[in-house]
């Protein structure tokens, strides 16, 4: 179960009970509904970073573009950006607590770093694009919308797993040990 290829003196702690962790995640989501009136989200904050980058390179082009333009001159001024920062902080805290924080490229033992990072980059581009199209990712659309019983979120969830399983065989080698 130990991820990674390098060795540390301190062994990472085993993972918690996934069902109870799931309940805890559900309660965080519930708090988000009750306090913000909106679910949890990740891709929205990242897309804002993309818009901010685009603003810094080509401001007038970005402001006049149809999609990013709607976010105004300061796209980072948005609650999901702050939620994303929080996600990093919370993740770091938990990883340190469980001795799981270490610099590494997670991959199968027989896989080159280049192949793994290539897949990660290509997957990221697809996910970034798809999240904008579907107006959310696994967090904002599938989980948050699913718990609200929205039809579109269930459709997204089903399609996500269907194509994930269909594509899994083609990219399996990155995990071969």
């Amino acid at each position: 179960m130990t991820p990674g290829t390098d060795h540390h003196h301190v062994e990472p702690e085993p993972y918690g009970n996934p069902y109870l962790v799931g309940v805890l995640l559900g309660l965080v989501l519930l708090a988000s509904y009750a306090i913000l009136g909106a679910g949890l989200g990740a891709s929205g904050g990242i897309a804002r970073v993309g818009a901010a980058l685009s603003m810094s390179v080509a401001p007038s082009h970005t402001l006049s573009s149809e999609y990013f333009g709607k976010w105004g001159a300061n796209p980072l001024h948005y609650y999901l950006v702050f939620m994303f920062v929080g996600t990093l902080v919370g993740g770091l805290f938990s990883a340190l607590l469980a001795n799981r924080a270490r610099i590494q490229v997670e991959r199968g033992a027989t896989t080159s770093v280049g192949r793994r990072l290539g897949y990660a980059l290509a997957g990221g581009v697809l996910v970034g694009f798809a999240s904008r199209l579907a107006q959310g990712c696994t967090s904002g659309q599938a989980l948050s919308g699913g718990a609200l019983l929205l039809s579109g979120s269930f459709v997204f969830l089903v399609c996500l797993f269907a194509s994930g399983y269909a594509a899994a065989w083609f990219v399996r080698k990155q995990w071969h040990d």
Binding site: G123, V127, A130, A134, L160, F161, A162, S163, G164
Partner: peptide, 8 residues
């Protein structure tokens, strides 16, 4: 979006 996301 879901189909592309799953592949990614």
């Amino acid at each position: 979006g879901g189909l592309l996301f799953g592949v990614g």
